[in-house]
């Protein structure tokens, strides 16, 4: 099947088998190896990307279902060599160790902050319940997400990094959520 997908701001047209998982399409065909596969059952969340501005597990979406949609991966977050506030917060709060869960964790954190611009600890923990980390015990991840949210409040930094309803639209996917 022929599909046309916008990934991290670039349009791609490809022929894929219908059974091709979106994550395999990203990794194998587009070389977007920043997004990884950690399980078979959609429990670990390591493969989380955004589809039209909402987090999804790319192991549980077929590539054909992304036809005519926009995908944002961890590789599409940094702009002009500048880290996204969530990436920066993960670094500054030591929210990663081996780093394998990190792309999915960051992508889900973005989604969480879009829904909850000032999340308390419990909201963060519940909002990340679809992402497993085996290294950190989550404490610094929770801290990083709250820290990032703080830096992304309206007026707190560059407009493109703030949370607004509009930034959920696909054309802004990645930059602002």
């Amino acid at each position: 099947m022929r599909i046309t997908v916008n990934v991290d701001g670039v349009g791609y047209t490809d022929d894929v088998e219908p059974r091709t998982l979106l994550v395999h399409y990203l990794r194998e065909r587009l070389g977007k190896t920043g997004t990884v596969v950690g399980c078979d059952t959609s429990n670990c969340g390591a493969c989380t990307v955004h589809l039209d501005g909402h987090s999804v597990k790319s192991c549980s979406v077929f590539a054909v279902q992304a036809d005519r949609h926009e995908v944002t991966t961890i590789e599409g977050l940094a702009r002009d060599g500048k880290l996204h506030p969530v990436q920066r917060a993960f670094h500054e709060n030591h929210a990663l160790q081996c780093g394998f869960c990190t792309p999915g964790m960051i992508m889900q954190s973005l989604d969480l902050i879009a829904d909850h611009p000032d999340p308390d600890e419990e909201t963060v923990r519940k909002g990340l319940e679809g992402n497993l980390c085996r290294c950190t015990g989550y404490q610094n991840i929770v801290k990083a997400v709250r820290d990032a949210a703080h830096h992304m409040r309206p007026g707190a930094g560059p407009e493109a990094e703030q949370v607004t309803e509009e930034t959920r639209s696909p054309s802004h996917a990645g930059g602002g959520e």
Partner: peptide, 16 residues
């Protein structure tokens, strides 16, 4: 010290 390793891990520039 913040970790040197993080730069590649938070951007997806990894070598798994």
């Amino acid at each position: 010290r913040l970790r040197k390793e993080d730069a590649r891990l938070i951007t997806g520039d990894t070598r798994w």
